[in-house]
């Protein structure tokens, strides 16, 4: 997950992305996003499934949920850019430096807009990281 964090933190305008989403990256964030923590990402490795096992080798699918949150009058268009930035970031190397075999591109992503004191927009992207281990490795 360190590689995922580093990749997400790399999403800055200075690095060629459309947004500075990488300035606020959290792992399993337990509290609500505060104003100074947005735009922000929270990522969660929620499920790891073994799906192939052959000759002392197992192949695993690690599900990672990536949540995005931002707020301001342009939150909706900003979140669209942030989703694109996340895809772009993952696509730069879907093996995460050789740690994985591949990363399955999501079949969908989901956006929500909420309205309280500010326009708040969020998105959820689910990716599956496929990797291989020997017996009893994870």
């Amino acid at each position: 997950m360190d590689a995922v964090k580093a990749r997400l933190q790399n999403i800055t305008i200075a690095n060629g992305y459309m947004t500075n989403l990488g300035n606020n990256v959290y792992e399993w964030k337990e509290t609500a996003f505060a104003e100074n923590e947005m735009p922000g990402i929270d990522y969660r490795d929620t499920l790891c499934e073994r799906f192939i096992g052959v000759l002392n080798r197992f192949r695993w699918r690690l599900s990672v949920g990536i949540e995005i949150a931002t707020q301001n009058s342009t939150a909706v268009s900003d979140v669209r850019k942030m989703i694109a930035d996340v895809y772009k970031g993952i696509g730069t190397d879907d093996t995460w430096g050789g740690l994985a075999i591949t990363t399955e591109q999501p079949e969908s992503d989901e956006m929500r807009v909420m309205k309280e004191e500010r326009f708040i927009a969020g998105a959820l992207i689910g990716i599956n990281i496929v990797y291989e281990t020997s017996f009893w490795e994870n």
Binding site: A32, D42, A69, R112, E116, A123, L124
Partner: peptide, 19 residues
């Protein structure tokens, strides 16, 4: 009145208020 109102959806929660 501007009490705390968390905005939550898709499992994403944001601190906010409802002025």
């Amino acid at each position: 009145i501007s009490g705390y109102a968390a905005a939550a959806s898709l499992g994403i929660e944001v601190e906010s208020a409802r002025p």
